[in-house]
Amino acid sequence: MYTKEVMDHFSNPRNVGEMPDADGIGTEGNPVCGDVMKLFIKVTDNKIVDAKFQTFGCGAAIAVSSMVTEMVKGKTLDEALSISKETVANALGGLPPQKMHCSNLGADALRKAIEDYKNKQQK
């Protein structure tokens, strides 16, 4: 059902955990639907220098979370914003169709984290 890449990121998720000094936090999803992702980013000079995540959800949700944190590291905020659900799914070698929407929370959580960072900057 899942690709090798999904199983790899699910079984050995990268960048798991809380980030106490995060510059931006984005939470997406809802446990009643089955998936929630919380994404933490650290930003220096408009660049994401570190990312971490916590996820409640199925194998796809955890793999997507892990993959997004890997993809964003070293990217500028604008580059990061260009990451879409499809980009993440493709990087994982594809997701089962029924998981494309419900479990593919990475790109949306990322957008929220960047928004959160920008809001904090304006204050």
Binding site: P13, G17, P31, V32, C33, G34, Q54, T55, F56, H101
Partner: peptide
Amino acid sequence: RKISPFAKGWGDMEDKTCTPRK
């Protein structure tokens, strides 16, 4: 649970309703 954001509790995430995502 180490991966879960709810390891310390559900917080305000209880009793939500699920509307399908697009």
